[in-house]
Design a protein around this nucleic acid. Structure first.
Lengths: 208, 208
DNA sequence: TGATTGACTGACCGCACGTTCAGCGTGCTG
DNA sequence: CAGCACGCTGAACGTGCGGTCAGTCAATCA
């Protein structure tokens, strides 16, 4: 009895997962706005109607797909940041985790970018604002907390932590974008080293 | 004869301009994807059909609207960068020009962000890629050239100029986004000073 | 083996959009 | 003042989307 149910659940989960993966691929290929339910169904090898057995509507599909992937990203970033390494080490770990994640999940990237600033109908916008912006804000806030701690520890100069967190986050996303788009990006270590150096020492001339 | 034609042209230009301004306002309010031709016509106080007397289709309206505004932005940035000031001064001038422009043209900002990464139908995407990406790439490239010159002059350390230009551009956009979204942002000078300091000296501890 | 279930299908619906065009009014012409 | 020209209008059209649901059929049950 219990086993049977488990089996059904497994099948369900498999369907849900394969639909989400199809959605991700289609969005990656055509962009968020142009990805239709028919496209996604075709990509998943099922009928359009079947999607509606597992997701209430398009919004929910996109939302769940986003959440599944972003949860994994956050898990990795949190893992990179735990422990009490120096700020410099944590910064490199953060950059490394993010780049690695998007290298493995190139397809997620397009979805991630689409959701960062709301588009579409007002209802969709509200939904996206509810779902996605907090995710981003939370990340920036936790980065700000780390910066604050590093300031307290005297590892970095004292500045506006919130603004600084924003800058660091955006720099890391910018390089990630660039790497995802490049055919053959330079070694990740080189880019990480460059950003880390720039953040810590700037580009001025005072000696290392 | 010549005068009459001039007058008609003026009326035409006025219509074109007021439609573009309406488009900008609507896109700013509802987002690129949700801004319909009816919305734009209503905002401009004319009938939907009238727009098609001045623009072939929606794509052309968006494209022309974007170009008109971006041309002004580039004019200002170029003005800020000409002359042979120090890199440090040019950097501040660049940041200042960009922030000032988006403060005056808050409405353009949404359009600018929408077009940075293509969305919509494949045809729209091709168009946007053709129109918008080069604009952005050109700006980054010219920034890279300035960085290169500063390196030659020994004003800043030698690094990968292309990557660095990307980081500087993204940082400045990030703060601009933040400022556009904030109810009452801090004084522009403070933000400019912060980014400039961060870029030139980093956040590490070695004394100023 | 016939009955029953329910996951799956895809033709269909309503709607909202971009686009069109026949007709309207206004002002200029002869 | 009649007639013409033309910028403008907005109802109507075609298209393509998200979403629905009556029907299908393979697996399970009794």
């Amino acid at each position: 009895m219990m086993l049977t149910k488990s089996k059904e659940e497994l099948v369900q989960e498999f369907r849900v997962q394969s639909i989400q993966e199809a959605a991700m691929r289609v969005i990656a290929r055509k962009g968020m706005a142009a990805a239709t339910m028919s496209d996604i169904a075709r990509e998943a090898g099922i009928a359009k109607g079947t999607i509606y057995l597992y997701f209430r509507d398009r919004d929910e599909l996109v939302e769940k797909t986003f959440e599944t992937a972003i949860t994994e990203l956050h898990r990795r970033i949190d893992a990179a940041l735990e422990g009490d390494a120096t700020f410099s080490a944590k910064l490199r770990a953060l950059l490394s985790a993010q780049m690695e994640f998007f290298r493995e999940n190139r397809e997620f990237f397009r979805l991630y970018m689409s959701l960062r600033y709301p588009e579409g109908s007002p209802a969709q916008q509200r939904r996206q604002k509810r779902i996605c912006q907090p995710q981003y804000r939370t990340r920036v806030a936790s980065l700000a907390a780390i910066l604050e701690r590093a300031m307290d520890a005297g590892e970095i100069r004292r500045m506006n932590a919130a603004r600084l967190a924003l800058l660091v986050a955006e720099m890391s996303i910018a390089i990630t974008i660039e790497r995802v788009m490049e055919e053959s990006p330079p070694a990740a270590e080189d880019d990480i080293e460059m950003i880390a150096t720039m953040i810590l020492q700037g580009i001025g001339l005072q000696h290392p």
